[in-house]
Design a protein around this nucleic acid. Structure first.
Length: 949
RNA sequence: GCGCGUUUAGCUCAGUGGUAGAGCGCUUGCUUCACACGCAAGAAGUCGCAGGUUCAAACCCUGCAACGCGCACCA
């Protein structure tokens, strides 16, 4: 035992033990271990990220799982790392470079230089969040830290790209995509969030060319796209317009041209005017109509959302929203605007840039998802479990309606699309793609020299599917009209040089960040090699993440897991809540409602932050952040600290054997409560109910151990029976050593400190708690032998409970008569049975009663306040202060209360139906209740009678 | 529009058919020999609304309302 300082100072203790754990290699995962495996891969935070409360929640949960698994004897791998986070990171760095005046636009630097700058940034700031996780106590195996742009990881990304291409699941095409005019890139459907907009519905009219004087009224929310209209559509069955189908109208804005009136089922009768302007270049549905009717496509918007010259001189160059207003003015001026009415509609926003996206026709790479059926089935059939399970439905719904994934991004930071191409002279249609296939080691030059094996390189005529001999090709650009793809080995610098010498250029796009993240569970473990790590730790056990990335990440990881590992990537997924402020808003930097966890750690300690967060985060609900919770955590740590100090004050040996013959009723009671807590905490953790587990521990330690057991034990500790005293200390040590272990996953630092300073580590084997509490054995509920040894059964805690109820009754009397708690008072118990001197002593202590008399023959003065307790009548004599009337009134109040209870239970028992239909057990319960209440009632009435009328 | 979830004390939440609970906050009294980051006592709830099932409903069923989330989306 080393002396425990008076105050708990978390900072020093935390850094000391974290360094110690790392030095001892406690976090390292050994694939050769014979212990059963437990593994988690961290949801990699953005490499530019800083620790937020969301990370605190998420990573505390993972740490709790990992630490408990170690104590349960598992070989634990918690694999950390960061994500390159394409758009986010490039935005952050570009913004800084602009601020520093290094560049105005990315083109000022060019691709290579900018990417170089981002790498510099990454090297400089990239590790911050991982360092911050250490401050939280995260027990990650840092030797395995991965980054999604590590060379080995990038090779995995290229490999799966080629694999999917070969399987025919990746294709390139000109499609309508979600275009972000701020980030200047295509986005996947998942990156678009719909927001309700207060806009306007503009009604304008166009004249029918063939019938001058006849007008059609069109309703639109986007008049600025009128110059891009190439038709006007009506429903073929709409009687109002059938006679006009096939005729033309004059377009209202832009070049004055005739556009056809066409019939299409897409148009509904009752929306707007039933006449739809068709803008194939700027609307997904209109594009489909355009395809059906072979309409021309006129693009009037630049990539960054400005009007092109095709929009007409008045609009050209204007920003899209200004152009909208201007268009309305132009229509108005032309007398074509009939009305403008306020209108609410939903508009897609770019999730990252928070600006409305534009549907835009562009050439992109798409992926048809692989292994969809297996991925759907594993959640549906329960072989993978979601917590809370309602997310399984959301997942299933998405998987059912799954759409192809646009995987190319017009950015520079990320995994560049591994495709090289050359456009041969004189032909726009001839492209030669060079695909990577990293299974092979030959360089491209060797292959082209004919030294490569036949399978090493394949040149395929895409149209015919017929392989072409490499020697015929020889980078001859004369293959007009033939598309050729080339699949070769992983490119090294030499390969790339050879390609570029021959006029090949790499596809400029990079891949969606999630196209690398979805490989995380196995690409971090050495795939495609069959590593011992994969063999031991894949599939991983648990994944802990937010429900907001269920499609972005979770679903895609499942599909990747099945596709390349042939197995699910994790067995359980725990979805955390989202942390909100008291007004229910998400925490964000811009709202300024996002406290810095490191400040909280500095103020309250990491354990306090962890405990406070976990206590307020029940499974399945969002978390309302309140600093009070962290304060609560801090207060709890202090309580734990002081309880340990109290134990230490009384000296004596730790780990002393408990002698069952010397156990007091209080000892038995606390052992029973400990046993309950062990069971409750273990079950809660098994079911991922982290707040329930922490709540149970909190209640056990504070209310049961400190408030009752420690206080009751003072009768022994300050007494004269040395043998009992030693035994009580042994019980305290027993309870404390179990409690510290139960708390360790939540409070790693303070439990380690106390584990050592209280001496619990001393006599244990090094690997089972001797070195560190991290590997101490997780407490198990008592066996029947242990229960018998301690003499614990259903009745063994009755006496202690009765005492505590008696004490509460006495304290109630004190309160009722305004006696200050610090003054000693005389109490007399007129016992209903026998009471040992020791038990009386305990009651006296807890009541602060002096003297405390147990007197079966006691005859109280008339009007002496009394409380009915399980142990008898408890009197509070008030010499000279007795107010008979007041006491009668007090008892009268209690009688009223008892009567109302009695009435309720009697009403039930009086009901014939009740007696006839209710189970025997419930009936007995009610009868017992009736007996108890009426006994009490009779006693109270007698007492009141004794006080006179 | 479709689906999911939530609604219990001032606040945040437990409570799956049988006597309404916790933490915080509040009130009152206590620097009582581990702890004022503490101890003790207390006040506070027609369990969202309306029906139904049942001997019995916070709990099960139906409908409604409010809030939140997901998906889809008609100009």
């Amino acid at each position: 035992m080393t002396e425990i300082p008076k105050t708990y100072e978390p900072a020093a203790i935390e850094s000391k033990w974290y360094a110690d754990w790392e030095a001892k290699g406690c976090f390292a995962a050994d694939p050769a271990s014979e212990k059963p495996a437990y593994s988690i891969v961290i949801p990699p935070p953005n490499v530019t990220g800083h620790l937020t409360l969301g990370h605190v929640l998420n990573n505390t949960i993972q740490d709790i799982l990992a630490r408990r698994a170690r104590m349960l004897g598992k070989e634990v791998l918690w694999l950390p790392g960061t994500d390159h986070a394409g758009i986010a990171t490039q935005n952050v760095v570009e913004k800084t470079l602009r601020k520093e005046g290094v560049m105005k636009h990315r083109d000022d630097l060019g691709r290579e230089v900018l990417v170089g700058k981002i790498w510099e940034w990454k090297e400089k700031y990239g590790g911050i969040i991982l360092k911050q996780l250490r401050a939280l106590g995260a027990s990650c195996d840092w030797s395995r830290t991965r980054f999604t742009m590590d060379p080995e990881y990038s090779a995995c990304v290229q490999r799966v790209f080629v694999d999917l291409y070969k399987k025919g699941l990746i294709y390139r095409g000109k499609r309508m995509v979600n275009w972000c005019p701020a980030s200047l890139t295509a986005l996947s459907d998942e990156e678009v969030i719909m927001k309700e907009q207060n806009g306007f519905m503009y009604h304008f009219r166009v004249e029918v060319v063939e019938e001058p004087g006849t007008f059609l009224t069109i309703a639109t929310t986007r008049p600025e796209t009128i110059p891009a209209d190439t038709a006007v559509a009506v429903n073929p069955n709409d009687p109002r317009y059938t006679h006009l189908i096939g005729k033309h109208v004059w377009r209202a804005l832009g070049e004055r041209v005739q556009i056809p009136i066409i019939a299409d089922d897409h148009v509904t009768f009752d929306f707007g005017t039933g006449v739809l302007k068709v803008t194939p270049a700027h609307d997904k549905a209109d594009y489909e109509i355009g395809l059906r009717h072979k309409l021309p496509v006129i693009d009037v918007l630049t990539p960054d959302g400005k009007m092109t010259d095709l929009a007409g001189a008045e609009l050209a160059g204007m920003e899209r929203f200004s152009a909208r207003k201007k268009s309305a003015e132009l229509l108005e001026a032309a007398g074509a605007l009939e009305k403008t009415e306020p209108y609410k509609n939903n508009v897609g926003y770019s999730e990252r840039a928070d600006v409305p996206i534009e549907p835009r026709l562009s050439e992109q790479w798409f992926l048809k998802y692989p292994s969809v059926e297996a991925s759907k089935a594993c959640v549906a059939d329960g072989s993978m479990r979601f917590f809370p399970d309602r997310w399984a439905k959301v997942y299933d719904h998405w998987m059912t309606g799954i759409q192809d994934w646009c995987i190319s991004r017009q950015l520079w930071w990320g995994h560049r699309v591994p495709v090289w191409s050359v456009v041969s002279e004189g032909s726009k249609t001839t492209e030669i793609f060079h695909m990577l296939d990293q299974c092979l080691s030959e360089t491209l030059e060797d292959l082209l020299d004919g030294k490569g094996s036949e399978s090493a390189i394949r040149f395929i005529n895409v149209e015919t599917g017929v392989p072409i001999s490499p020697t015929i090709l020889e980078f001859n650009h004369g293959l007009n009209g033939v598309q050729v793809q080339i699949q070769v080995a992983t490119l090294n610098q030499k390969d790339i040089a050879a390609l570029e010498d021959n006029g090949f250029t790499q596809d400029p796009d990079v891949l969606d960040t999630w196209f690398s993240s979805w490989l995380w569970p196995f690409a971090t473990m050495g795939w495609p090699e069959k590593t011992s790590t994969l063999a031991k730790f894949y599939p991983t056990t648990d994944l802990v993440t937010g429900p907001d990335i269920i499609f972005f990440w979770v679903a895609r990881m499942i599909m990747a897991g099945y596709e390349w590992m042939g197995d699910l990537p994790f067995k359980n997924v725990y979805f955390t809540g989202i942390i909100r402020d008291k007004q229910g808003r998400k925490l964000s930097k811009s709202l300024g409602n996002s406290p810095d966890p490191l400040d909280l750690i500095a103020t309250y300690g990491a354990d306090a932050l962890r405990f406070g967060t976990m206590r307020s985060a029940p499974l399945g609900t969002d978390v309302v952040y309140d600093e009070k919770n962290v304060e609560l955590g801090r207060n709890f740590c202090t309580k734990l600290w002081n309880a340990a100090r109290f134990r230490q004050m009384h000296g004596g040996e730790t780990e002393g054997e408990i002698r069952p013959d010397l156990l007091t009723s209080d000892d038995q009671w606390i052992l029973a409560r400990l046993n309950d807590a062990i069971g409750e905490v273990s079950t809660a953790l098994d079911e991922y109910r982290f707040s329930d587990a922490s709540g149970a521990l909190y209640r056990f330690f504070w209310s049961e151990y400190c408030d009752w057991y420690v206080e009751a034990s003072k009768a022994t500790l300050y007494g004269t029976d040395e043998a009992r005293k030693a035994n009580t200390l042994a019980v305290m040590d027993f309870v404390f050593s179990h409690t510290l272990r139960l708390f360790h996953p939540y409070l790693p630092f303070i439990t380690e400190e106390l584990w050592n300073s209280m001496g619990f580590a001393n006599d244990l084997p090094a690997k089972q708690g001797g070195d560190t509490i991290m590997f101490a054995i997780w407490p198990k509920p008592f066996t029947s032998e242990e229960l018998a040894y301690f003499g614990l059964d259903e009745t063994s805690d009755a006496l202690a409970k009765a005492k505590y109820t008696t004490v509460e009754a006495g304290r109630g009397l004190r309160r009722d008569f305004n006696l200050p708690g610090n003054k000693k008072n005389r109490f007399i118990l007129k016992p209903s049975g026998t009471l040992e001197a020791h038990e009386a002593n305990v009651i006296a202590n807890l009541l602060n009663a002096e003297p405390f008399e147990v007197d079966a023959a006691f005859i109280p003065a008339k009007g002496t306040p009394v409380a009915l307790t399980p142990l008898g009548e408890l009197f509070l004599p008030l010499e000279g202060l007795i107010d008979v009337a007041a006491e009668r009134e007090r008892i009268g109040k209690e009688i009223t209360k008892v009567e109302s209870e009695l009435e309720k239970v009697r009403a039930k028992l009086a009901d014939d139906n009740f007696a006839a239909k209710v189970p025997a057990k419930v009936l007995d319960e009610h009868r017992q209740r009736e007996t108890d209440w009426s006994e009490k009632h009779a006693q109270l009435v007698k007492m009141r009678e004794a006080l006179g009328a």
